[in-house]
Design a protein around this nucleic acid. Structure first.
Length: 229
DNA sequence: AACCAGGACGTGA
DNA sequence: TCACGTCATGGT
């Protein structure tokens, strides 16, 4: 049943190509459209250490914030410096905060980024464990799992508020089920496939943004006949 | 003009 | 554990 939902969403929206990465091909980093700068149906990203790090930065900046706002913040950062641990660390604190301001919580997120940078540097390009990530102040379960799945390509499913909402409406989990319960449900009912996990989470976000909002818009929802709303 | 966005953390019970 | 409160900008 769960896999059927995945297939319906994939059929409806197509491969999403997450994680979104800045597109450096032009003179300035751009990424305005839904797909431009993404890499749909290409699963060999990230290809560089800089891309791995950019995903981590984005994962922190997007906490409780729309990606459009994070995109502005990333572009601001890219305008100030190269988005690498040393590049970001060289910024004046106020410059850093101003750059990420569009993503909100700029005081907290600046602190989170600086703490994460030190952690990241200490890894020397080694893949961190989930426990290590969670030990960093500002890195919670969703952020840690996003980093593991999208930056490091480990088969770990990411749960977010959308996932909880959609899966509870489909009757899969309780409406206030714990993070790990939802994660285990998915990972026990789908093949442990990186591509499936990456796409499924991205598809859930896309579907939620279009239909399964706090004020749901069910008219054209492809999952209507499976929904218990 | 409220409400919400791809959360995480601190606090008091 | 649980239930709130806090953090903050910008789009709808």
């Amino acid at each position: 049943m769960l896999k059927k939902i995945y297939e319906i969403l994939l059929q409806e929206y197509g491969p999403q190509g997450w994680w979104p990465l800045l597109d450096y091909r032009g003179t300035n980093p751009t990424k305005t459209g839904a797909v431009e700068g993404y890499h749909p149906a290409e699963y060999d990203f990230p290809k560089t250490d800089q891309q791995i790090f950019e995903i981590c930065v984005g994962a922190i900046l997007t906490q409780n914030t729309s990606w459009a706002q994070v995109e502005k913040a990333l572009k601001n950062l890219a305008h100030e410096t190269i988005i690498t641990p040393t590049g970001l660390k060289k910024l004046e604190e106020n410059v850093l905060k101003d750059a990420i301001k569009p993503a909100g919580y700029f005081n907290q997120k600046a602190k989170k980024l600086l703490l994460f940078i030190d952690f990241y540097a200490s890894l020397h390009r080694r893949t961190p464990s989930r426990k290590e990530l969670l030990s960093v102040w500002g890195i919670g379960k969703e952020t840690a799992d996003s980093i593991l799945l999208y930056a490091y390509g480990l088969p770990i499913f990411v749960v977010d508020a959308y996932t909880r909402r959609i899966f509870s409406m489909l009757g899969f989990v309780d409406k206030d089920a714990e993070y790990d319960v939802i994660q285990n449900f998915v990972m026990n009912n789908l093949p442990q496939d990186i591509i499936v996990y990456q796409e499924f989470h991205a598809l859930i976000v896309e579907h939620a943004k279009r239909h399964c909002k706090t004020k749901p818009d069910c008219q054209k929802c492809i999952l209507k006949k499976h929904c218990q709303l």
